[in-house]
Amino acid sequence: MEYKVYRDENTIEKFQFLAQIRLEEFVKFPYLYQGSMAEEKEYAKEYQVPGAILITCSVAGEDIGVISGYPYQWNQGKSAEVEAELATMGIAMDEIYYIGEVILIEKYRNRGIGKQLEKMLVDTIKKDYKYALVITVERSLDDPDRPEGYHYKNGLREGTGFKRLKNEIIYHWPVKRKSGIREEENVVSVWVKPI
């Protein structure tokens, strides 16, 4: 396994891989994201900020996983309720680092690679930030597109010290349902932990 860190404007070097893996993996439940390369190019702009980090993992020269993030202050204003809740916890926006995603090609999952990517990112940021923040997509238990036997993996977040906030954020994105593709409101849970 080879890990490589990209920072600030250099994150764009791995944009194609990040976009590709997001389009392939996030179409699955619970994300059901039916994006396009044009939408991914727009999303990539979030990583063109000071403090952005993208770490890849490769095997024999082939990228198989990625973690990304940037200082949460660049996300400020997306949810007044979440920001107010963080403030009541005594957490300032400039103390938080947002971990955008940890994605692995399916055949490389459950080998500890995701944990290693997250550890590398946290080790890189902990001298400058006090908290890590992640979001998870959740859909109702009776969602018609929920695969049989599907269980949310929130225990993974709780088991690594993250605390779920009471408030959630709603994002809009194109969702691929069995009934077709449509723009939907998607509720995400917010998790934070000291680092």
Rank of each mutant, 00 (worst) to 15 (best):
N10Y: 09
S179G: 08
R157D: 03
R111P: 02
I12S: 13
I195W: 00
I53A: 09
Y47R: 10
G100Q: 03
Y6I: 08
K178G: 08
E62S: 13
G35T: 10
Q20S: 15
K163N: 12
R164V: 07
A44W: 12
E158T: 10
Q34A: 15
A44M: 15
K126Q: 11
E42N: 11
I170Q: 08
N10M: 10
K153Y: 05
R157Q: 10
A84E: 11
E83I: 07
G90V: 05
Y131D: 00
Y31A: 15
V175S: 09
K127M: 09
Y33I: 09
L133Q: 05
K193H: 07
G112T: 07
L54T: 14
D143L: 04
V188S: 05
S79Q: 01
V5M: 10
I55K: 02
E148H: 09
A44V: 04
A87Y: 07
E25T: 11
G100S: 08
A87Q: 11
Y33C: 05
W74S: 13
E13C: 04
F15W: 07
K153M: 11
D63N: 15
R139L: 09
R164H: 04
D8C: 02
K45C: 13
K176P: 00
E168N: 14
Y97T: 02
E2N: 15
F17K: 01
A44N: 13
K14E: 12
K115V: 10
V190K: 07
D63K: 12
P30L: 06
L121R: 00
A19Q: 02
G65Q: 06
M89V: 01
A52Q: 08
T136E: 07
S36D: 10
E183R: 07
E81T: 12
E184Q: 12
G149V: 03
F15A: 13
S179T: 15
V187M: 14
Y33E: 05
I21Y: 06
E13A: 07
E85A: 03
F15G: 01
F26V: 02
A44E: 11
